[in-house]
Structures are given as structure tokens and as C-alpha cells.
Simulated scan of single mutants.
Amino acid sequence: MIGCLFIHGFTGSPYEVQPLADYLQEQTDWKIAVPVLPGHGETLSLKKIACTEWLDCAEAALIELLEECDHVYVVGFSMGGLIAAYLTARYPVKKLVMLSAAAKYLNPAQVKEDVKDMMKDLREKKLHENELFLRYREKLLVTPPSAARQFQKVVGLARPSLKKINIPVFIAQGTADGIVPVKSAPYIYRRLSSAERHLYYSQDAKHLICHTGNTEELFKKVFTFLSG
């Protein structure tokens, strides 16, 4: 049996990766696991949560799959991509997929474009229809500074793990990502020790790469990589 672990991002939930998880579930008989990291989900509660709790949660889900399955793949989105790399360097994972992985953070140029779009929608009284605004408004309001510091700790822990990874890796990055700059993807690519590594840019995809841009093409490429 094949198992596939999905790890969502900082201040996120399984929603972020669910379309891809559903796609793979439809195409295969794999065992899919999409845990909710402590303090995350549709209602955030991140005060007094340590990054080690996020790592432990993902690690426990990975160990469970490794015990049940012959081969295990890991898919990580944003901060989840870094957690996925951290765990892949320590466990016998067969393949790794990193989506919008946050090795670097914030793309000022794209943020400026996104804010311009929001201001335009505000003037036209359509801000309530702007999905990016709706998804991130609450996160900006309820994310405590301490949680942001824990996120930075994950980045610090995960970056050294990249050079220890020598299994096949697929890296996907949206070209219109306002959270993770495009340069994060080649940064990761260069630091891997993998002989097989793929770098894919999803045109016009924003940070939520499983929801924006050409998701059909992305999902097919991920499936081809994992099933090949």
C-alpha cells in the first residue's frame, strides 16, 4: 500500500491542500492523511503553541503511515513544505512534493499588486468578493506575534535539512504568489542533494497554489511524478 501525507501551511488548514488530496484519492487507492496542525484549522488558536507541537503532529502522522504502508510520499504546502523537508531528512520517505514552500517569505512586488486589486474592489464595492482578502483578513487579525516567531523557528530548523534530502523531489511555485517569493523555489532546488528534482512554475497561481492558476496541469504533474 502507498501512503501520502499532506501538511498544510502556517495559519492554514487542510483546505489549502484538499483539492490535490481529493484528486489523488480519485486517481488511486492510496491512504491519504491530512492532519490539522495544533492551533490551526478554520478557527485559529495559536497563542502559546510551540513549533515543536506542529513538528510532532506531522511526525506522528508520518510514523503512522510508515507503519501501515509499504511506501510513503509527503506533500507540504508553504510552512508545511518546510516541515515536510525536515521530516523527509529523518525518515524513509520515498518522494517529496513541496508546494509554495516558504524557505523565503513575502514577495513585496506581488503584495503591491494584490493590494491594488483589493483597493480596486473596494472602490467598486466588491471587496466582499475578493477571495484573497477574505482568506487573509482574519489571519492578519488573529495571528499573535509569538506564532510568527514560531514559524521563523520552523524555517531555521528546516533549511539545513534540504542538503540531507537525496530522494526524488517535485517543487511547485506560483508565479503570482504574494506570500512566498518566486525565488524561494530555486533556492530550495539548489540546496537539495537529490539526483532527481523537478522545478515547476504554475503561471498566474497565487500562494494558494491548489486553488489558483492552472490547477489541473499542476495536479497532473504531481500525480505523474508520484506514480512514476
Rank of each mutant, 00 (worst) to 15 (best):
D22V: 08
Q152F: 03
K163F: 09
V93M: 13
L62I: 15
P35E: 09
A185P: 05
Y23K: 06
L192T: 01
I171C: 01
Y105T: 05
I32Q: 05
R137C: 12
A89I: 13
V155Y: 01
T212C: 11
G174A: 02
M79F: 04
A176G: 07
V93A: 09
G41S: 11
V75T: 01
M119D: 10
S13E: 11
I167T: 10
K125Q: 10
A60F: 09
E113H: 03
K220E: 14
H198N: 02
F77T: 13
F133H: 13
L162W: 01
R137S: 15
Y201H: 13
Q150D: 02
S78T: 07
D204Y: 14
H211L: 13
I188P: 00
T11N: 12
Q152W: 04
E16L: 06
I165A: 13
L55S: 06
T215E: 08
H8Q: 08
L20V: 12
G213C: 02
V115T: 11
I167D: 12
M98C: 04
L122D: 06
M98L: 07
I171Y: 02
E59H: 05
K221Q: 15
Y105D: 01
I32H: 06
D56I: 02
H128A: 13
I167R: 11
L55E: 07
K31W: 01
G41D: 08
E216R: 14
K221G: 08
Y105H: 03
R123F: 10
C69K: 09
L55P: 05
R135I: 11
H71Q: 15
K206W: 05
K125D: 07
L199Q: 04
E68K: 07
M119P: 06
V182N: 10
S45V: 09
L5H: 15
A61M: 02
A50V: 15
P19A: 05
K48D: 14
S13Y: 12
A147P: 07
H40Y: 05
N130E: 02
A85C: 04
K116F: 00
N130C: 03
Y105L: 12
G39W: 08
M79D: 09
Y105V: 05
P186N: 10
L141N: 10
I63T: 13
S45N: 15
Q18V: 04
C57S: 09
G3L: 08
K95V: 06
I83C: 13
W54P: 04
T88F: 14
G9L: 06
E124Q: 15
C4L: 04
P186Q: 11
A84Q: 13
Y201R: 11
P108K: 10
A147T: 06
P108E: 07
V72M: 12
V155S: 03
L96D: 05
L226R: 03
H8K: 05
D121N: 12
I165E: 13
L46W: 03
D204G: 08
L65Y: 01
S146V: 03
Q25E: 07
Y91K: 10
E59F: 04
E67Q: 11
A109L: 10
I2F: 15
G12D: 14
S146E: 14
T28Q: 01
